Simulated assay, not measured.
Amino acid sequence: MEIPRKLIWPGSTQLAPVPAVLVGCGDGRTHRYNLITVAWTGIVCSAPPMISVSIRPERHSYALIGEAGEFTVNIPPARLARAVDWCGVVSGRDHDKFKERSLTSLPGSQVAAPLVAECPLGLECRVTQALELGSHTLFLAEILAVQVSEELLDRSGRMQLEKAGLLAYAHGHYYELGRCLGHFGYSVRRKPGPTVRR
């Protein structure tokens, strides 16, 4: 296999693909429920389960999350790509995003921020730290609860998220996740040997 030539670019945000998620915020009383599309998010710890989201201070959701200290992360299917994109380019100051995109808000079990019923997976999160990094602030949060659509569970209760047709984002474009190539550890898994009959 021929090794491709590499070009050297200045440091920049070229990591891809990344998830395109809907972050829910607001409590529905003091502040109207809002959604913001975020691609800069990821799991940062397993015990306790923690996640991060990066948001610009000028965004409407930034103040809502900072004040409440909680939010939800909703994993959308590809069929919601237009709504996900729209929620990332208009402001919740001027739009009721749930109403205008015909999305259904669900109450959290641990937080006041809303979840999105049309998303197959939702994480309820409480902020533990806010780190000002420059253009964005990184909110670190503990995942307090997870809401999963029942139709994604098999008979044994195992989640089959691969059936949800999830959305990904790469350099300004949305994609639907495709075929499975393997599972974690498959490259070192022993192949079953011949059956020995006795």
Rank of each mutant, 00 (worst) to 15 (best):
M1W: 06
I3W: 13
P4S: 03
P4Y: 04
R5W: 08
R5S: 12
P10V: 05
S12H: 13
S12I: 07
Q14S: 14
Q14L: 14
L15F: 13
A16W: 13
P19W: 03
A20H: 03
L22R: 06
V23A: 05
C25W: 05
G26S: 06
D27W: 04
D27V: 07
G28F: 05
H31D: 13
H31S: 11
R32P: 12
N34H: 06
L35P: 07
V38A: 10
A39T: 11
A39G: 15
I43V: 11
V44H: 04
S46K: 11
P48I: 02
P48R: 02
P49M: 01
M50H: 10
I51R: 05
V53I: 15
V53Q: 05
S54C: 15
I55M: 01
I55T: 02
E58A: 08
E58H: 13
H60W: 09
S61V: 00
A63Q: 09
A63P: 07
A63V: 11
L64H: 14
L64R: 08
L64C: 02
E67A: 15
F71E: 01
V73E: 00
N74L: 00
I75F: 03
A78I: 03
L80G: 04
A81C: 08
R82W: 07
V84I: 03
W86R: 11
C87K: 05
C87S: 09
C87T: 09
V89Y: 07
V90T: 11
S91K: 00
S91D: 00
S91P: 07
S91T: 05
G92Q: 01
F98Q: 05
F98D: 03
S102Y: 09
S102C: 10
T104F: 04
T104Q: 06
T104G: 04
P107W: 00
G108K: 00
Q110S: 15
V111F: 02
V111M: 06
V116T: 02
V116E: 04
C119G: 05
G122E: 00
V127D: 01
V127N: 06
V127W: 02
T128K: 13
A130K: 09
L133K: 14
S135A: 10
L138E: 10
L140Q: 10
A141Q: 13
A141G: 14
A141W: 00
I143G: 02
Q147V: 13
S149W: 08
S156N: 11
S156P: 07
G157P: 14
G157F: 07
R158K: 15
Q160P: 09
L161W: 08
E162K: 11
K163D: 10
A164T: 04
G165C: 00
G165D: 02
L166P: 06
L166V: 09
L167A: 03
A168V: 00
A170Y: 07
G172V: 00
G172K: 12
H173M: 15
H173V: 09
H173G: 10
Y174I: 05
Y174S: 07
Y175V: 02
E176F: 02
E176A: 08
L177A: 14
G178T: 01
L181P: 09
L181G: 15
L181T: 14
L181W: 07
G182M: 01
G182K: 12
G182A: 12
H183E: 15
Y186W: 13
S187W: 14
V188K: 14
K191A: 11
K191G: 09
K191F: 11
R197P: 12
R198I: 05
R198F: 08
